[in-house]
């Protein structure tokens, strides 16, 4: 299940040339789109499992591409961004992108993000009953959280936040979405979020000052790592 059909949307021939062989080598099928319109058309024609999308396209804004794709499908979209601007990443995520990587990215990390997205894609149809990764397990039915087999007591807010992160495990979750999950409104003070993430780390991390599980994406949000060795 770890392989799928990838739609790579980038107008940079160099990036396409560099990325395609590696994606194929790990078993993915790769379709290339050089601009937004081709990408949108390709969504219906090829029905890819994951979209890798460069925001800087010649014919239209990458965010518009995300919006258009989201009108018809929930296919995971990973944004590849060369402009390290938080507001642009947040805007892309708000439009419905699932994750982003910064250029220049490390190949291994990009492939891991693709794996995460594929995993999520495969679970799209069935409602997940829980989360299981490395030392952490969450039972969505009983709301029971276990760390290395030991039950961890979480407050309802902490649990909601953790569940939100776990549902998009391996992918970034914006502050806005986390605030909506924990406090019911996305415009709540991000300071609350920092406090609760801090408390979650106290309970879940081996060393809360060097988090391995709940990672900060500066200015954007948080990510639940599925690769941590912890």
């Amino acid at each position: 299940m770890k392989t799928g059909h990838i739609l790579l949307v980038d107008d940079e021939p160099a990036i396409v040339t560099a990325l395609r062989p590696a994606l194929r080598a790990v078993g993915h099928e790769v379709t290339i789109a050089r601009d937004g319109n081709t990408a949108i058309a390709s969504m219906t024609v090829n029905d890819p499992d994951v979209v890798l999308l460069d925001l800087g396209l010649p014919d239209m804004d990458g965010k518009d591409v995300i919006r258009r794709i989201r009108q018809t499908t929930g296919t995971p979209i990973i944004v590849i961004s060369a402009r390290h601007q938080e507001y642009e990443k947040i805007a892309a995520l708000d439009e419905g992108a699932d994750d982003y990587v910064d250029k220049p990215f490390v190949l291994g990390e990009l492939l891991a993000r693709v794996r995460s997205a594929l995993r999520r894609r495969n679970h799209l149809d069935e409602a997940p009953t829980g989360f299981e990764a490395a030392d952490l397990s969450i039972d969505y039915g009983t709301r029971e959280v276990k760390l290395r087999g030991e039950v961890v007591k979480l407050s309802p807010k902490e649990y909601n936040l953790l569940k939100m992160l776990a549902e998009s495990a391996g992918q970034v979750v914006t502050q806005k979405r986390l605030l909506a999950a924990g406090w019911g409104r996305s415009e709540a003070d991000p300071q609350y979020l920092r406090v609760y993430v801090g408390m979650l780390r106290q309970k879940l991390e081996a060393n809360p000052s060097e988090p391995q599980l709940i990672l900060t994406e500066p200015g954007v949000g948080y990510r639940l790592s599925v690769n941590h060795a912890g």
Binding site: A14, A18, A22, A25, A82, K103, P104, L107, G108
Partner: peptide
């Protein structure tokens, strides 16, 4: 970043696969 990404991805691909 764009050319750097292409270079690093190409090199990493060759190394890995």
């Amino acid at each position: 970043r764009s050319p750097l990404t292409a270079i690093s991805t190409s090199a990493a691909s060759l190394l890995e696969y």
